[in-house]
Nucleic acid binder design. Sequence first.
DNA 1: GGGACAGTTCGGCCGCGAGCGAAGCATTCG
DNA 2: CGAATGCTTCGCTCGCGGCCGAACTGTCCC
Lengths: 240, 240
Amino acid sequence: MGNMASGNTIAEVAALIGDTARANILSALMGGQALTAGELARHAGVTSQTTSGHLAKLADSELVALEKQGRHRYYRLATPDVAQAIHALMTVAANGPKRHHPIGPRDEALRNARTCYDHLAGRLALALADVLCERGHLTLTDGAGFVSAEGERFFMRFGIDLAALQGTSKRPLCRTCLDWSERRPHIAGKLGAALLDRFLELKWVERVPDSRALRVTVPGRSGFASTFDMFLCDPQSRRA
Amino acid sequence: MGNMASGNTIAEVAALIGDTARANILSALMGGQALTAGELARHAGVTSQTTSGHLAKLADSELVALEKQGRHRYYRLATPDVAQAIHALMTVAANGPKRHHPIGPRDEALRNARTCYDHLAGRLALALADVLCERGHLTLTDGAGFVSAEGERFFMRFGIDLAALQGTSKRPLCRTCLDWSERRPHIAGKLGAALLDRFLELKWVERVPDSRALRVTVPGRSGFASTFDMFLCDPQSRRA
DNA sequence: GGGACAGTTCGGCCGCGAGCGAAGCATTCG
DNA sequence: CGAATGCTTCGCTCGCGGCCGAACTGTCCC
């Protein structure tokens, strides 16, 4: 016997995530937005009372954080560490035994473009990373990415001031994140977050309600084409 | 309702890890060695029948892999992804609410030096990373590390042929891994694995039975001192 | 004030699954 | 061969925890 203590609390955390309803809640929060208890109840597929209990547990263990706002209560993932843990579990789950998992249209939308906590993921993110690397703006060695001087100027023209981002915290400027569905790295870290913010700001992409999925708008299609030479052939992109 | 499918299987994986006994088993396997069912039963603190059931489930879901050898059955973590997921959960657990967790001597040993799946972790690993960075053999930008040309020559002299490692797979040569106990990055990836192997080969460190902890030997103390200018003051280092 | 809506707390039901004892296989040894 | 060891399978018990209905608290709006 001996080390009960060391492996013990990881079990508590995992058990917390290991319930279908709570996992659905956390997955929904992986979209990066704070959601209300009611929205989370719908995601979880259980009644609001049950959800309330789940949220209380998650908050107790500091997996999610609570922000009261009027008569709404907004929940979000407490720390990036939590997002990373969930991401890692997704990766393991995706490679598990025989995902017969018939890939519904919903999954297909997620594979195309989605948010991953605070940055872009899915095929769109991979294509973007490819283009930036090809142009020499970025080099992705597994684990981290480096922005070239030319790349820095390019991002500046696009409306992202890397130098300004640099200082604010010790968070890596550009990390890579292994794409859950495609098993290839995409751009995460501060640069990844800044890119997603900018795309949303420009309305090149917009969030699909009740989902982590993103939809490329019509201006987005031409924007990606002109700025990044990316010609998307997604028929579902929104008209108008 | 809607996306039951997406968040579902991550719940299965997390639930698997979210049992105390199974978490202990997986934590033990984070040492990187394959262990027998009996050893794992002792780590888990339950009988061998119960352990057998747990191992069957873990193997079914491909979290652990089985290797039969005579009348022994050796279990190990199935993939590095699994190790990463457990590591991420440890990180979340370590920063959870008020770990009053009285830090026993066992924990103290783990904080000093331990294995993290296939590489070195703990204070020893941090000190090593510091020295290598100071000397300019290595630069750690969060997420990844780069070995300088001089560093490559240094590792070669030390008995690690980076060029040979480079080719074998697309696994990153040097990743960083956030140290669970100290919250700072240490050296992981192929270089990390190669360093641990070499230290074990030189008998500078040795595994503590039934634990992920490592012990620095007397030759190890002088080795670390002469090669890396690291002067360890651990009183527990083994005499002879 | 009253009514609607968001969210939580309480009480009770019920099912899943962790746990062990005992028995059943396999492998290795004398 | 038969005893010993390592591990698994079977059958059973029992407690934890998820779930919902109902009632309660709190906020906003007319």
